[in-house]
Amino acid sequence: MAITMQSIKEAVEVLKSLLPADFKPEIGIIGGSGLSALEDAVMEPRWEVPYGKIKGFPVSTVPGHAGKLVFGHVGKEHTPTVMMAGRAHYYEGHELQTATFPIRVLALLGMKTLIVTNAAGGLNSTYKVGDVVVLHDHINFAGLSGVNPLRGPNLDEFGPRFIALSDAYDLELRRAAHLAWKELSKAQSKQMAMHEGVYAFVGGPNYETRAECRMLSLLGADLVGMSTVPEIIVARHSGVRVLAMSLVTNAVVMEPGPRGDAILLAESNEVELSNMLKEGKADHEEVLEASRNAAQEIKVRSMPRARRLLT
């Protein structure tokens, strides 16, 4: 599908027809794998729109992505907000221009700030499952090979042909996130730690090999995942400020696997050999479970205070 200003405007008109005339979302939130439950941060009254009702919106086929827009208000100032409960991915077969189409639509609808969340594998050995990492940079492997959401005719109405991304991750928003986390920690015992780090975007859908994870770590990545970066690129091209956070849902395996010539020297049976390879193996159900647990932790322990700190 070719992304044009006309197709974006048509989607905007559909949303306007479904929302109160005076509602214009200032903040957008993307809920990653298993994190759609964070939609509870959006207060009533709320308006929900399934992606399938919006022409041009890609519909996610991945478990853990609800596939709807949730409109409402957050924070002590009742800031108008829209949450994307789920997203589309490149590995599902969507072109990146299509996968990031919702960002264009929401920017034209009025969004000024985008908060992106995702589930990611932890490359940094100091990260634990359940920790939150505020992103301050990324490595776009797909983009370096030419797979970029800005490829093709430039949408001049949004931004210039060539954009800098050295300031992609808004410093003021990152500072606010850390201050809010400290404020929350005063009243609640720390169940999750917050860090800052670098996210590596890979195409997926397979999880990375041990050697690939070692390479990513050596190149300076703290996390690895299959989303987020295309959305951030389009948001910045659209003049939208960005705060991005990853939930560490699994610690990736970087140690070299057992060698066949070494195993042949030992008297190991088939089950034992299989278990050697399975140790630390990534699994999407485990990722979703970790995400759901973290989302519940945030909802139960932090959300009442987090709402007040969002604005």
Rank of each mutant, 00 (worst) to 15 (best):
L96I: 08
G34P: 14
C213P: 06
D40H: 14
D156F: 14
G130A: 04
H138D: 10
Y207E: 11
V12R: 05
E272H: 11
V14N: 04
Y199C: 01
D40F: 09
A211L: 12
L223Y: 05
L277I: 08
V49E: 08
V234D: 12
L243H: 07
L108H: 09
M303W: 00
Q188R: 15
I30D: 00
Q191D: 13
A193C: 04
R174E: 09
I263E: 12
V129T: 15
K190L: 07
Y51G: 00
A11G: 10
A180M: 03
V198G: 03
K190R: 09
E77Y: 14
G143I: 00
I103P: 00
R174L: 14
L38I: 00
N293Q: 14
G86I: 11
Y51C: 03
I103S: 01
L218T: 13
A119W: 03
A266I: 10
Q97N: 14
L265S: 09
N269D: 15
A244D: 02
G225D: 08
A251T: 08
K55S: 15
A66E: 14
R174D: 01
L144Q: 13
P50L: 15
M84G: 02
A266Y: 13
A244T: 01
Q188F: 08
H195K: 08
R241A: 04
P25Q: 13
K76Y: 05
S268V: 12
D222H: 15
L135Y: 04
P230E: 03
G225W: 10
L106P: 15
M84Q: 07
P304V: 08
A200F: 00
S227K: 07
A85R: 12
L288R: 07
M215P: 02
K186V: 07
L35Q: 02
D283A: 05
P25T: 08
I54K: 09
S238M: 05
K190G: 05
G72C: 05
K24W: 11
G34D: 08
L114H: 01
D137G: 09
D222N: 14
D40C: 14
I115R: 03
D156S: 15
F201K: 13
I29G: 00
H65W: 02
G110Y: 02
E255Y: 00
K182C: 12
V271S: 04
S166V: 11
R46Y: 10
V74L: 07
E286W: 10
L15I: 08
A193F: 04
E270N: 09
V134Y: 04
T100A: 04
R292Q: 00
K299T: 11
H195I: 06
A180N: 10
H284E: 10
L184V: 12
L216G: 07
L144N: 05
G110H: 09
L15P: 08
I54S: 04
G64W: 03
A41M: 15
L243N: 13
V253D: 04
R307K: 06
P160Y: 04
K278E: 15
K9N: 12
P304I: 06
L108N: 02
A2N: 03
I8H: 12
G197N: 11
